[in-house]
Nucleic acid binder design. Sequence first.
DNA 1: TATTGTTATACTCTATAACTATA
DNA 2: TATAGTTATAGAGTATAACAATA
Lengths: 144, 144
Amino acid sequence: MATTRTDPLTLEVVDLIGTVVARYHDEYEEVAARYGLTGAQARVLGLLSLEPTAMRRIAQKLKCEPSNVTGIIDRLEARGLVERRPDPDDRRVKIAAATEKGRDTARQLRDSLRFAREPLAELSAQERGVLRDLLKRMLGESPD
Amino acid sequence: MATTRTDPLTLEVVDLIGTVVARYHDEYEEVAARYGLTGAQARVLGLLSLEPTAMRRIAQKLKCEPSNVTGIIDRLEARGLVERRPDPDDRRVKIAAATEKGRDTARQLRDSLRFAREPLAELSAQERGVLRDLLKRMLGESPD
DNA sequence: TATTGTTATACTCTATAACTATA
DNA sequence: TATAGTTATAGAGTATAACAATA
């Protein structure tokens, strides 16, 4: 394989992306904490606010072991943000679903995440379009 | 304050940035694990490979409490990657420094982080320049 | 037999509070 | 008295292994 040269420009962009990642992550944790949630809890609640999901599938999306999901859902359920439902097709499966309160919280949380939105306001529509296209090409085609 | 409109293009870019953040984070953890390090340990080792740093300053850079740094440095020190040195100017202060083995590991680790480099190879030099400028404007002027 | 979710265990990261040795 | 680092403690996320219920 061809060695990727690391010219100064590439290194600068890599560094900028690192900064974006750090800032995004910090803000996500901070906003989650504002709602009394950990980052992992906020991510799961965000997932479930889109659609009810089986425990095992949640683990896949989080890239962690299924055993960990039990505790995260336990804590969200204890606060009335999530509930476990049986799967009518397979009695082994439990489906976690956001309650109405959970969906409310998820929406507020999403609205509070200004990071990726306010800085973008600095850019014109055309520039945002360019940024979109460049990011898309960086990320390549990898539908999850 | 003016409400930030969230037009479809902005939302798309926000989503793309979220994907970049997730992928970057996952790869960082995975590469660290390949060297038997946790993400936090790898980040600290990376810092110390650039310059020896007092415990308190490490906590500031990690945005965590100083008490946590003790354990992280303990574990890195137990593996011979880091050492504690006294500060000649203030006997309360301990300065953590990467050993030669630690600097080696940090360099290998850095070289293994292909994420932000290989995808950029998809872009021309001019496009990387555009991306750099857009990211810089997004991030604004905030020297750490 | 294989799979789903859970439990039990151990490790790391995290914040808080109390302690020590310096300043 | 204030500060740097540590220790003690508790909560949370993580992986691994073993288990019950179901397929």
